[in-house]
Amino acid sequence: MKYSVVIFPSSQVQEVANSYRKRYDPTYALIPPFIRLKEAFDLEESALPQLVDHLEQVASSTDAFSVRFHRVSTFHPTNNVIYLGIQNKEPFEAIHQKIMAHFAQKEVYAFVPHLTIGRDLADDELKDVVSQLSMAKIDLTTLVDRFHLVYQLEDGTWTVYQTFLLQK
């Protein structure tokens, strides 16, 4: 089965992100807006208890923190993805490193904490949308006090397997 580890921001941030995702993200209906801590990976069910134990240890050794989204950016030309940029990336990088200690295989892309609001756009459309959205004032904050192990269903939707509360 395919799994991932994500953070869902507050409902206020999700509303703003979804106002863009409805138009620019074909995965809009498959998962709420999220910040990915671990790329999607395949895992046998027999290995799940070990991963859950590891994620519980990560959560218990991590303090809750606030995050501020402050701009619209893109990964172009590597990927035609538009995202809300995060101002304070350090807490995400720390939790990502803790999670990755469980995995032998490196990820495909360098870890850049972000909230995707658009993907799979043609180059011209991407440039138009980014230039338009870069003029928007983005100033959103959310408390991060949990992360989630999610899994993908046969229809492509993602659902929460388990939630891990951060130490307060």
Rank of each mutant, 00 (worst) to 15 (best):
V130C: 00
A101E: 15
Y151C: 07
D123N: 13
H96Q: 09
L140Q: 11
T78V: 15
L84F: 12
L84N: 06
T159A: 14
V144Q: 00
V129T: 10
K98S: 12
V129K: 11
E93V: 11
Q105M: 09
P113W: 00
E93C: 07
I95N: 04
D128Y: 09
V129R: 12
E107Y: 00
V108Y: 09
R119N: 09
K137W: 07
R119T: 14
F75N: 11
N80H: 10
N88M: 00
A110L: 11
E107H: 03
N80S: 12
Q152K: 12
N80E: 12
N79T: 13
V81W: 12
G85Q: 02
H76K: 12
D139H: 10
L84V: 06
L121C: 02
Y161G: 04
D128L: 14
H148D: 11
D155G: 02
N79Q: 13
A122P: 08
I86L: 07
Q87E: 15
A136E: 15
P77C: 02
L115A: 04
H102L: 08
K98V: 04
D139I: 02
T157K: 14
V160M: 01
V144I: 13
H76V: 09
H76P: 02
D139T: 01
D124Q: 12
I82G: 06
H96P: 07
A104L: 11
I82C: 04
D139F: 03
P77S: 03
M100K: 13
I82L: 15
V160T: 14
A110P: 11
K127R: 13
M100Q: 15
F92G: 02
Y161M: 08
L115D: 03
H76S: 15
L133E: 03
N88G: 04
M100H: 09
L115E: 02
Q162D: 07
T142F: 05
P77G: 04
L126I: 05
F75E: 08
M135K: 15
N88I: 04
E107P: 01
N80T: 10
V112G: 00
F92T: 06
Y151L: 07
W158R: 01
D145S: 11
L115H: 07
Q162R: 15
K98H: 05
H76E: 11
S131L: 09
I86E: 03
F103S: 04
E154C: 00
